[in-house]
């Protein structure tokens, strides 16, 4: 049976969750460890921690957050943001992460994908791709790859880059539509489908979720293997359990909460 995963994503800086979190019954809603435990209890299939700071001090704080999470939360944890080398990856894995997500570092030096994959296995080498339509009026131009939160364009084509990343050892692709990120208009289904059908590794769809039907669309229309969302869960609009109920009702195989 192939089952779709639901993955809450936490943006973390200086050991705190950002993008205001609104769980009334948490003692400290800004504590990534407590939030992670909450999502686990709700039936989250995995968690992603995205370190959105870059200084080396913050890196040590992130290692501590990962280690504290690994003491209490026993579902898979992916850590991304600022991981540039095998040593960076090792530090996070030894702290308790199961996978590391490579983004800009993989674009700057694609060899790092194969280095991480050969050292720790392809299953822990996730490549994150931030993609944006080159020209909305000319769909045939496809999607380009961007860095730095969608601000900086690269020469890479999103589909070609995804294929190359997998050839170099990526075991999973975390695909974010920069056109949709933050819009709450739903995933870029065309992009998701184009990437997912070009690959034989799992694809996590990200960017744009505003309601639960978007998660359903990501899997059924986009062909995603997993769906990632942040704000709809953080703000308490929907629980992970509700997300799974909606998906199950649409005929998608999910692990019930």
């Amino acid at each position: 049976m192939q089952t779709a995963r639901v993955i809450p994503c936490l943006d973390v800086t200086a050991g705190r969750v950002v993008k205001g979190v609104n769980f009334v019954d948490l003692r400290d809603a800004g504590d990534p460890v407590e939030l992670a435990a909450r999502y686990d209890a709700e039936g989250a299939d995995e968690l992603v921690f995205l370190d959105i700071t870059a200084s080396s001090d913050a890196r040590n704080t992130m290692v501590d957050v990962v280690a504290r999470t690994a003491e209490e939360v026993f579902i898979p944890l992916t850590v991304g943001g600022g991981i540039r080398t095998v040593d960076d990856a090792r530090t996070m894995l030894r702290a308790g992460a199961d996978k590391v997500s490579l983004n800009t570092a993989a674009i700057d030096r694609p060899e790092v994908i194969s280095e991480v994959a050969s050292e720790f296995g392809t299953q822990c080498a996730v490549v994150a791709i931030d993609a944006r339509r080159r020209d909305a009026s000319v769909p045939s131009q496809g999607w380009g790859v961007f860095t730095h939160g969608g601000r900086n364009p690269t020469q890479l084509d999103a589909i070609e880059w995804a294929v190359q990343a997998v050839a170099r050892g990526a075991g999973e692709i975390l695909l974010t539509s920069m056109d949709r990120d933050g819009t709450r208009d739903g995933f870029d289904l065309e992009l998701t489908n184009a990437i997912s059908s070009a690959l034989n590794v799992p694809v996590i769809a990200s960017g744009g979720v505003g309601k639960l039907s978007h998660l359903v669309d990501g899997v059924i229309k986009g062909g995603a293997d997993a769906v990632l969302a942040a704000s709809i869960f953080h703000f308490g609009e929907y629980s992970v359990a509700e997300a799974k109920q909606e998906m199950a009702a649409a005929g998608i195989a999910v692990r019930p909460a």
Binding site: Q2, T3, A4, V201, P202, D225
Partner: peptide
Amino acid sequence: PDSVKRPQMQWNV
């Protein structure tokens, strides 16, 4: 098998 994505990276029964 080739008919499924590899790795199997998911929850299963």
